[in-house]
């Protein structure tokens, strides 16, 4: 396993696309978070906005860069045929996928932490000017810290989900389409049905809606899922995708 990890790390490190994608994760997340904060005004009398969720809104955009990073880590090899070189050098296919998952997740955790902390900083700079209380987004605040750490974990789980889908689908464009479609389309789907029971069920099943529940710090009781349970739904999606991808990788001819 150590050799598979070393090889996959060297691969990702020497792929010129990795650096720009990691930068994109940070830049897109922070920029969109700052923009979201700048477009909201809070009336001093009754400010009903969830400042934390607003300050971390960029995660919804940054996750696309995470998905592309993870999809390319496996589909890039299928596109060029390098997967055959990889599986010739490392015939233990499960170990290869595990190593890829570890390396991609590790990098996502690093970039995700930078992206989320950058968003917090942006929120702290922008929000006071928009009518919010003087010092929003304090990491000393329990729910805020949970939202921040949870957002980093959310991005890591998106990476695993994307890697699993990429392994199963094999084609970069198709895999990216499946992942982004699953995330964004399923997030608006609940709002397109009238029945409230169906709405709640679809909301709970949506990896993005459920997963981002971890960012909520206000009106928790009105959410269909508790923050950690929501992240659990995303974990289940990621686990299922990886399992499916792993089984197909082992079964199929390369």
């Amino acid at each position: 396993m150590r050799r598979e990890l070393h090889a996959e790390w060297t691969k990702l490190r020497t792929e010129p696309g990795t650096g720009p994608l990691l930068l994109a994760i940070v830049a897109v997340t922070v920029a969109v978070s700052a923009a979201a904060c700048a477009t909201v005004t809070c009336a001093p009398a009754r400010c009903d906005h969830d400042a934390v969720r607003l300050g971390l809104a960029g995660v919804q955009a940054g996750q696309a860069a995470v998905a592309i990073l993870a999809v390319l880590a496996i589909c890039g090899e299928y596109g060029t045929g390098m997967i055959r070189t990889t599986l010739t050098a490392m015939p233990r296919r499960g170990a290869v996928l595990t190593a890829k998952a570890a390396v991609v997740t590790g990098l996502t955790l690093v970039a995700g932490t930078a992206a989320v902390l950058g968003s917090v900083l942006a929120g702290r700079l922008v929000l006071p000017g928009r009518g919010f209380t003087a010092a929003p987004l304090s990491l000393a605040d329990g729910p805020t810290l949970r939202a921040v750490a949870g957002s980093v974990l959310y991005l890591a789980l998106i990476a695993l989900l994307s890697l699993g889908v990429g392994t199963a689908v094999r084609d970069s464009a198709a895999a990216a389409g499946v992942v982004l479609g699953l995330l964004y389309l399923s997030s608006i789907l609940p709002y397109m049905v009238g029945d409230p029971d169906w709405q709640r069920l679809l909301w709970r099943l949506s990896p993005m809606n459920a997963g981002l529940a971890v960012q909520a710090t206000t009106h928790l009781s009105s959410l269909p899922l508790s923050p950690w349970a929501g992240l659990g739904v995303l974990s289940a999606w990621a686990g299922a995708a990886l399992l499916c991808g792993g089984l197909l990788l082992r079964r199929r001819d390369a």
């Binding site: 070393h6 090889a7 020497t14 045929g81 070189t85 010739t88 050098a89």
Partner: peptide, 26 residues
């Protein structure tokens, strides 16, 4: 084994291609 000379990622340098292969074998 040499099966398909094109089976490598074009953006990686020749040396780095051999480097990850070497790392996969210790």
């Amino acid at each position: 084994a040499l099966l398909d000379a094109a089976a490598l990622q074009p953006s990686r340098t020749a040396r780095n291609h051999l480097l990850w292969l070497a790392h996969s074998q210790g």
